[in-house]
Design a protein around this nucleic acid. Structure first.
Lengths: 193, 193, 193, 193
DNA sequence: GATGAATGAGATTTCATTCAT
DNA sequence: GATGAATGAAATCTCATTCAT
């Protein structure tokens, strides 16, 4: 299981406040004094635990990615059929969003190209790969259409991300878990031969 | 037809540079000096034509929205069936993205809650309304599933936005116009009864 | 003649305050707010005219070097004999120190290796070269001892720098101009065959 | 003999690292974390042994002064003639610089007025006194010129300091001990009647 | 004795904005 | 209309020092 949170209590407080504020206001609109106020720690404590504001963002991001990948392995790769994998992916993302919307939004919206050196989001690179693997599997299995893989992948990640956004914006009010089945079914309808 | 560009040549240069930089680097990471350099105008000129940086962003955004709505009227509302409306929406967005990726990205990614007082994106509010109207139409027509409208709407905007993102990130290299038909068909497959 | 001072009045004030404070308190102990207070300008004005604190120091230093070299040409190189050159050097440095002790101290004590990229002081590199040229000339002329040139050069720059230091520290109270002749004579006594 | 080094091993390490760094980078550019890294000790250890960074600098400086004075007594005051005293002074300083350039530079360049409350350097106050005593002696003896004592003193300390500087800067590469005789002779030539 | 987490004042620098020319 | 010098609040980060363990 991914180690998701840092060691000491203060480091923890910094980490959580920063992540919350980064998601709420954006990385660049969150100032160090903002974090100081929210976490109730001193400036010095922040710089004692993280070498820079950027490093703080990077650590948060890496943890989120790690968490994504470990959840993916358990709840998607383990599944036997393409249909189950899609269901697993939707379930995993929606449950995660219900229980920790902040982290999921960090993963979806951190624009790492601008903030970080690394380059992961579910939106790009490895994030995309995970989804593409489902598509590949479904095509080999003979269940999915033979269209371009990236296009098909966009029908998995696109609606899922969109629905999480709508939940975040308060337009969807019910728990996302209540729409897992319908969402998975619609994705499957789009992709199946 | 939407008035898309300001009157004088200098105002125009400011407008275009600002929009480009806002998309490339984000609103908050784009400084007035950045715009000065890119547009080759003076600070004074910017403040002569726009009362503030925020107003500049708002004008750009409103133009994009206006453009979206007028394109929507012409290319979506005019269509007679739900299937044609979906095709029309995809065609409109993809062609627009091919011809002016900057504006489209501005529309998709400007987070108006944070930057602006107004409240529009295709991602939210009125943007969502447009897409929801297609869903409503399709349900009345008896073509679409009876699921929650917001959920169905996410299967229109989600993949479209995702594919434009992938084009922007360079992961899709072909013109989006070449995948209009397949995309529209997949959306339809997801939504149809 | 060397252009010694910048153009606008405010730039001038910044320049003079900075140079004075750098000499009085040292580069690193002089803060931007110190300069702001002393010059009676805003922080912004400083950064409008100089790209950084370091650049400010560099400009001041370069001006001092330029001034040194032009004075050297006029008052030392122009002289016909080694004895006159020594007299000219002492006269030039002492008169300069009497009239502008701040600049001369900046030249003598700025440690450019630490503060600046460039590498000039009368204490090192080109500064040393100037003095070594006098020694070379005196040796060719047959007036000076045949000892190592650097060692002989130290008998020109060493006492001159030392006396300026003592003047700066208030240990010497009379104008340095009043000891030009004796100083020059003693240097000559040390170097002559 | 001067007590030059503190008691415990850790205190010793702090002392030596601090002195080295103060000389290399200057007092104000040397941070406590710098010393921590270089000495391999903890912050707490530094504050256990020295009450403040300033006190650390003062102790180092006082040791250097004490060392200077005891060397001076043994190698200069003990000498019988002015000529021998000069030779003794040059020999003492150059040998010392050859064997411990760091301490000697600390003595020459620490600007105690700015850093410390105390007030000694060879460059000023008591440092100057030592050299002035040689001059006084030489004048009483009838060997030296009757010029101002401070001026004559500058011909002892000036070249000696200058040559140590040139050694420090790497412009002189041979050991200073190899130029003791010539240097002493040149000083004597300058001062003698 | 020794440690290093925590503090917060203060450093340099950026930047939206104003206004005299 | 156009310019850019000037402003100063606010940002990120450093660092001497304290103190609980």
């Amino acid at each position: 299981m991914a180690k998701k949170t840092p060691e000491t209590e203060i480091k923890q407080k910094i980490y959580l406040s920063a992540r919350k504020l980064f998601v709420e206001k954006g990385y660049h609109q969150t100032s160090i004094p903002d974090i100081v106020k929210d976490a109730g720690v001193s400036i010095g404590a922040i710089y004692h635990h993280f070498s820079s504001k950027e490093e703080l963002a990077r650590v948060i991001h890496e943890d989120a990615v790690e968490s994504f990948l470990s959840r993916y392995q358990l709840q998607v790769e383990a599944k036997a059929t393409a249909k189950e994998k899609i269901r697993g992916f939707v379930e995993m993302m929606f449950n995660w969003a219900d229980e920790d919307l902040i982290t999921v939004n960090y993963l979806l919206h951190a624009r790492p190209k601008e903030i970080l050196d690394c380059n992961f989001t579910i939106c790009t690179a490895e994030g995309l790969e995970a989804v593409k693997k489902i598509v590949e599997f479904g095509q080999k299995e003979g269940t999915f259409k033979d269209a371009d893989q990236i296009l098909l992948a966009a029908f998995i990640s696109g609606p899922v991300m969109r629905l999480i956004e709508l939940k975040t914006d308060g337009i969807i009010t019910q728990p996302l878990s209540s729409i897992i089945d319908t969402t998975a079914q619609l994705i499957f309808d789009a992709l199946k031969k």
